[in-house]
Design a binder for these strands. Sequence first.
DNA 1: GCCAACGTTGGC
DNA 2: GCCAACGTTGGC
Length: 160
Amino acid sequence: MKTEPDAFSFDDLKACPQKTEPWDGIRNYQARNLMRDDMKKGDLAIFYHSQAGEETGAVGLATIAKEAYPDHTSWDPKSKYHDPKSSPDNVRWLMVDVKWKQDFKQLVSLQTMKAEKALEGMRVTMRGQRLSIQPVEAKHFKKVCQMGGLTKAQIDKLGV
DNA sequence: GCCAACGTTGGC
DNA sequence: GCCAACGTTGGC
């Protein structure tokens, strides 16, 4: 899951009150469908900082705390995420809740991921991948955790 | 700030 | 249903 840390960072997620955060504002059908179809409660996500200069990359892990439900900001005219075509009766956009899980010991920069042979084919390393939510294969997921400095025991414990 | 990539919109 | 125009993302 990508986010611009200037808007919302991994530290913000870690600090937020009940440690769960509604992932609102997703206005892309592919991303919405991934949330709706593929994200189950308890699933893990790699948290990724985009547009962050040297700090661009994967910073840690989050858990899906709540499965897809209507994104109410979509029918709120005051919201920056307002979509006039969405309403409570005709829900167009969904969100999930996420929860901080684990920090990486070190940043796994985009550069490092691109250079890592074992991550070949991982979406985020390929050009033109703007999608803010991307599916990650288990082998890539574990490799990124390893590059982030998690121990083998810690990675095994995740049950990926 | 540039620009490639690509999603969305709307005229036809 | 095609496709040009336009908007957005995000690396650089």
